[in-house]
Simulated assay, not measured.
Amino acid sequence: MMGMMGRGMKGHGMMGGDGMGPPIMARMIFALMDADGDGTVSLPEFQVAHERIFKAMDSNKDGKLTPEEMLAFMRGTTNPVPQQ
């Protein structure tokens, strides 16, 4: 996943096409993660945010993510694609 993100970020990335700073979505995500509003994201703040994402993706609540659950989350569907 990291490789996919890295490739996708090279052209536009966190810095936007004009190099003037993060696009609005990145700023919004940062603001949501910066729970204490100190302008930084600590490891605990980072972990809390990612735990929420994990729990939202884990549609069957078994404490594990399958590729199907991740894809269903990214597509905005409630159920993962059935396994064959």
Score class of each variant (00 low, 15 high):
residue 1 M to L: 05
residue 1 M to E: 01
residue 1 M to K: 00
residue 2 M to H: 02
residue 3 G to I: 01
residue 3 G to M: 09
residue 4 M to S: 00
residue 5 M to R: 07
residue 5 M to G: 00
residue 5 M to Y: 05
residue 6 G to K: 13
residue 6 G to F: 09
residue 6 G to P: 00
residue 8 G to E: 08
residue 9 M to A: 12
residue 10 K to W: 00
residue 10 K to T: 00
residue 10 K to Y: 02
residue 11 G to D: 06
residue 12 H to N: 06
residue 13 G to H: 06
residue 14 M to A: 03
residue 15 M to H: 00
residue 15 M to I: 00
residue 15 M to R: 09
residue 16 G to F: 04
residue 16 G to P: 01
residue 16 G to M: 06
residue 16 G to A: 04
residue 17 G to M: 11
residue 18 D to A: 11
residue 18 D to F: 08
residue 19 G to H: 11
residue 19 G to I: 06
residue 19 G to E: 10
residue 20 M to H: 10
residue 21 G to M: 06
residue 22 P to F: 01
residue 22 P to G: 05
residue 23 P to C: 02
residue 23 P to F: 02
residue 23 P to T: 02
residue 24 I to W: 09
residue 24 I to D: 15
residue 25 M to N: 13
residue 25 M to F: 14
residue 25 M to V: 12
residue 25 M to P: 01
residue 26 A to F: 14
residue 26 A to I: 08
residue 28 M to T: 12
residue 28 M to P: 00
residue 28 M to Y: 10
residue 29 I to T: 14
residue 29 I to V: 15
residue 30 F to A: 01
residue 31 A to H: 11
residue 31 A to E: 07
residue 32 L to G: 05
residue 32 L to D: 08
residue 33 M to V: 04
residue 33 M to Y: 03
residue 35 A to Y: 09
residue 35 A to H: 07
residue 37 G to C: 07
residue 37 G to I: 05
residue 38 D to N: 15
residue 38 D to P: 00
residue 39 G to A: 02
residue 40 T to Q: 13
residue 40 T to F: 12
residue 41 V to N: 08
residue 41 V to R: 11
residue 42 S to L: 06
residue 42 S to N: 05
residue 43 L to Q: 10
residue 44 P to I: 08
residue 44 P to T: 07
residue 44 P to N: 09
residue 45 E to Y: 03
residue 45 E to V: 03
residue 45 E to S: 01
residue 45 E to I: 03
residue 46 F to Q: 06
residue 46 F to M: 14
residue 48 V to W: 10
residue 49 A to G: 05
residue 49 A to F: 15
residue 49 A to N: 10
residue 49 A to D: 03
residue 51 E to I: 07
residue 52 R to L: 13
residue 52 R to I: 09
residue 52 R to F: 07
residue 53 I to V: 15
residue 54 F to N: 04
residue 54 F to L: 03
residue 54 F to S: 02
residue 55 K to F: 02
residue 56 A to V: 03
residue 56 A to M: 15
residue 57 M to V: 13
residue 58 D to H: 05
residue 58 D to K: 06
residue 59 S to M: 14
residue 59 S to Q: 12
residue 59 S to T: 13
residue 60 N to V: 03
residue 60 N to L: 03
residue 61 K to Y: 05
residue 61 K to P: 01
residue 62 D to L: 11
residue 62 D to K: 11
residue 62 D to T: 10
residue 63 G to P: 02
residue 63 G to R: 13
residue 63 G to N: 09
residue 65 L to N: 08
residue 65 L to R: 11
residue 66 T to P: 09
residue 67 P to W: 12
residue 69 E to M: 14
residue 70 M to D: 00
residue 71 L to I: 14
residue 72 A to H: 05
residue 72 A to P: 07
residue 73 F to I: 07
residue 74 M to E: 10
residue 74 M to F: 12
residue 74 M to A: 15
residue 74 M to V: 13
residue 75 R to P: 00
residue 75 R to Q: 15
residue 76 G to P: 10
residue 76 G to W: 13
residue 76 G to I: 11
residue 76 G to K: 11
residue 78 T to D: 14
residue 78 T to H: 11
residue 78 T to A: 13
residue 79 N to I: 03
residue 79 N to Q: 15
residue 79 N to F: 09
residue 79 N to R: 15
residue 80 P to L: 10
residue 80 P to Q: 07
residue 81 V to Y: 12
residue 82 P to C: 03
residue 82 P to G: 02
residue 83 Q to L: 10
residue 84 Q to H: 09
residue 84 Q to G: 10
residue 84 Q to Y: 03
